[in-house]
Design a binder for these strands. Structure first.
Length: 413
RNA sequence: GUGGGUAUAGCUCAGCUGGUAGAGCACCAGGUUGUGGCCCUGGGGGCCGUGGGUUCAAGUCCCACUACUCACCCCA
């Protein structure tokens, strides 16, 4: 990009999705809709802008997302508004706002852009896209397992198989504080040996130390107390049943007691789907249960469970997908009216038709037809027009023949 | 916010120890008065990211800035 001629440039961390790439995106999103809807979920669309407070209260005041990654502005009324950094908060807000707890419907999904002000790198952008599902008011552990199952089904339908599913129990308000205390006192003994970041984490969120990539910290973390010995009976049995159901549903998983989620609202069961093909950002999808969030945001106490998958990360993993192409390329040798007449007839029966209006040699038109991967070229000039005929070439089979217009339209029906 | 790498044609990149730009792909045209995919020929297009310095001479060396990229932090 030789800056000069391009004074208008895209923002850092933002990306255009060009037609060359769009087939993949459309495949991803239609596959996601079909898969998720096949489980009885329905789409919900919530605004990109919400009051800043919503995210502070749901995601957590002290998380990095809220502390340094949000696109937050004052609107003309001096109200602080934020571009959504994740999807769950908005859906929960809509659930409460619209009194959806009174509806018998509990299963929602969304697809759309999210915004986080971070340094871009592989698999990470400032505007990125997520596909997520949320289930409200179902406490049975089976639904947790179904959420994971749906996620796995989605990946399978996209042809993505080389992933692992990691799960963990992170406890609830009752038992997590005890566990946090135990972690704190354990790590305090090794304080001087921890990396700089972990020394900070020790007081902010000791759970995160479990997640550290530093080799030495990992060693220390290995000996740290496990949630299993602190989880309350409710959390423990919930988690155990989720595991049973996952097995029943045929979902392979790995238990990872070091698995931690970055958002504050998670409780009990959490999971992550990970690939090793994406560099440092291996998490393709993640989710879990959030039993306090609805109440925390002012709704009636209602449990929740869901996941969010990163579209850009999924895109990188998709290998096979249907390519869009046109059915008919009309090589129009200066007979616009006749060309349009034919094209519209074809469109009327659901065909994709590209009409060439540029005056160029037939040779170059045929080249274009080929590049567009058109199945047929319809060649028409004065001759064809005057005799109400069309010259049709099948570009896949390289066969050509002349038809009367009527016979041709009859043929393609 | 911090660290590493990169910056030459629309795209991917070559350009040795400094002598004033190249390939492949793409695009356009021709080889076929109205016919694609392969092949051949030709063509357009670059103040070599920006600014400064060293030098007779800088794409090439030095400095700064900017952008991109990868990684840390954190996350999908």
């Amino acid at each position: 990009m030789t800056g000069k001629e391009c004074e208008v440039e895209i923002l850092r961390g933002f990306k255009d999705i060009l037609p060359d790439n769009i087939d993949k995106w459309q495949f991803l999103e239609t596959t996601a809709r079909n898969t998720i809807e096949s489980f009885g979920f329905r789409e919900i669309r919530t605004p990109i802008l919400e009051k800043t407070q919503l995210f502070k209260r749901s995601v957590g005041e002290t998380t990095d997302i809220v502390e340094k990654e949000m696109y937050t502005f004052l609107d003309k009324n001096n109200e602080s508004i934020t571009m959504r950094p994740e999807g769950t908060a908005g859906v929960v807000r809509a659930y409460i706002d619209n009194h959806l707890e009174l509806s018998s419907f509990k299963k929602y999904y969304y697809i759309g852009p999210m915004f986080r002000y971070e340094r871009p790198q592989k698999g990470r952008l400032r505007q990125f896209h997520q596909i997520g599902i949320e289930v409200f008011g179902i406490d049975e552990p089976a639904i947790d397992a179904e959420v994971v199952y749906i996620n796995k089904a989605l990946l399978n339908n996209l042809g993505i198989n080389n992933v692992r599913i990691e799960i963990n129990n992170i406890g609830c308000d009752m038992c997590r504080p005890n566990y946090m205390d135990a972690l704190k006192s354990y790590f305090e003994e090794y304080r001087s040996q921890l990396c700089e970041d972990c020394q900070k984490r020790l007081y902010r969120n000791p759970l995160r130390i479990l997640d550290c990539k530093n080799e030495h910290c990992r060693l220390i973390a290995k000996g740290a107390p496990k949630i299993t010995s602190f989880a309350c009976e409710t959390c423990r049995s919930h988690y155990d049943v989720v595991k049973e159901k996952l097995t029943d549903f045929g979902v392979d998983f790995i238990e990872n007691p070091m698995l931690v989620r970055g958002l504050d609202y998670y409780t009990k069961f959490v999971f992550e789907i990970i690939t090793d093909k994406l560099g440092a950002q291996g998490t393709v999808s993640a989710g879990g249960r959030y039993d306090n969030l609805v109440e925390q945001l002012g709704g009636k106490s209602t449990s929740g469970v869901g996941f969010a998958a990163g579209e850009e990360r999924l895109i990188e993993l998709i290998e096979d997908y249907p390519k869009n192409r046109i059915d008919f390329y009309i090589a129009n040798l200066d007979v616009d009216e006749y060309a349009v007449q034919i094209a519209n007839k074809l469109r009327g029966i659901g065909k994709k038709v590209y009409v060439e209006y540029e005056r160029r040699s037939l040779k170059s038109m045929m080249k274009r037809a080929n590049r567009m991967n058109a199945e047929f070229a319809v060649i028409i000039g004065e001759n064809e027009k005057n005799n109400r005929k069309v010259m049709v070439k099948n570009l896949f089979e390289s066969k050509q023949s002349e038809y009367s217009l009527e016979a041709f339209l009859d043929e393609v029906k």
